[in-house]
């Protein structure tokens, strides 16, 4: 049922339904082809990029729920399916804990926020050193300072004091769960697209605009590659567009993913993210990440 609903994203194609059984020849061809960038003419005859998931190391509970996603091209505005990729269900079909996503967003907002709201206490307000009137005999209430908090223009008690840091650390595995949940949500809502690489043919920003228009992405798009050095063309093309941003995979975070409507990952970035997140979910020294956060920890 779900697969049927996901027909735009997921496969209903009997030949390659079970990617694990596809021919290894095709796979090795695809692997070599993907590394070499060839011209537009040769790309048409290129074999499909079939990337099955290797479950040997981290087997999911149920393989039947593994997601499959198309790999799209970016060398032209028109959409072409270049291949198919199997995504690990622990990363891309995890329980969509929207509450954990919200906690991540709140944490990302707060940990860097320093409140500059400031009020003066009675000691800091100018004046008020002398007793305004004698203690007795005036028929007035006794007061020692005109800057007492009872006075208009006096100091403020328990007011905000700057700088107040709102730094705190979200537990490590909540951060991991935030990433897996957000990736799963993005995939489930058809907001996650996988592209071959980030090699676009021109430096023209109009190309990116047309691409987004044609493929019904965005409007705001976050493009993620594995490395932080992007090819020249895409840097020039996206530079002037405020709503299209580039990000290396190590910088991927919940806030940026949700800030952009569409998340576009390269094949390499998907593999890298899967590898890193599965490692965090299965690491041997997990207890060392679950200790209390210390400011001077490495």
């Amino acid at each position: 049922m779900l697969k049927f609903l996901n027909k735009t994203r997921q496969l209903l194609y009997p030949n390659v339904r079970n990617l694990s059984h596809t021919v290894t020849v095709c796979q090795s061809n695809a692997a070599t082809e993907s590394t070499t960038t060839t011209g537009k003419e040769t790309l048409v005859s290129k074999p499909a990029l079939i990337l099955p998931q290797n479950y040997a190391e981290h087997a999911p509970v149920s393989r039947s729920t593994a997601r499959q996603a198309w790999i799209e091209n970016v060398d032209a505005v028109t959409e072409r399916k270049v291949g198919l990729m199997e995504l690990h269900p622990d990363v891309f079909a995890a329980q969509p804990r929207v509450d954990v996503i919200q906690e991540n967003i709140e944490w990302q907002r707060k940990y860097r926020y320093v409140s500059m709201a400031h009020t003066k206490t009675r000691a800091e307000v100018r004046g008020g050193g002398r007793k305004p009137w004698p203690q007795k005999g005036m028929g007035r209430a006794r007061h020692g300072s005109i800057r007492s908090p009872l006075f208009k223009g006096g100091g403020v008690i328990h007011g905000p004091r700057s700088p107040t840091t709102h730094f705190y650390m979200l537990p490590f595995y909540k951060r991991v769960m935030g990433l897996t949940s957000t990736l799963s949500v993005k995939l489930a809502q058809d907001d996650l697209h996988i592209i071959e690489d980030v090699e676009i043919p021109t430096k023209d920003a109009q190309f990116i605009r047309d691409l987004i228009q044609e493929r019904n992405w965005g409007p705001s798009v976050l493009i993620v590659d594995k490395h932080d050095v992007f090819p020249e063309n895409i840097c020039y093309a996206t530079d002037s567009i405020g709503y299209v941003n580039l990000m290396p995979a190590y910088g991927l975070n919940v806030y940026s993913m949700l800030k952009h409507d569409t998340l576009v990952l390269t094949v390499e970035a998907v593999k890298h993210l899967e590898e890193r997140l599965l490692y965090q979910l299965h690491r041997n020294d997990a207890a060392s990440k679950q200790t209390k956060f210390k400011l001077d920890q490495v």
Partner: peptide, 10 residues
């Protein structure tokens, strides 16, 4: 299996 997850994603 994973009914709740699939239900939620659906």
């Amino acid at each position: 299996l994973r009914e709740s997850t699939d239900k939620a994603l659906k």
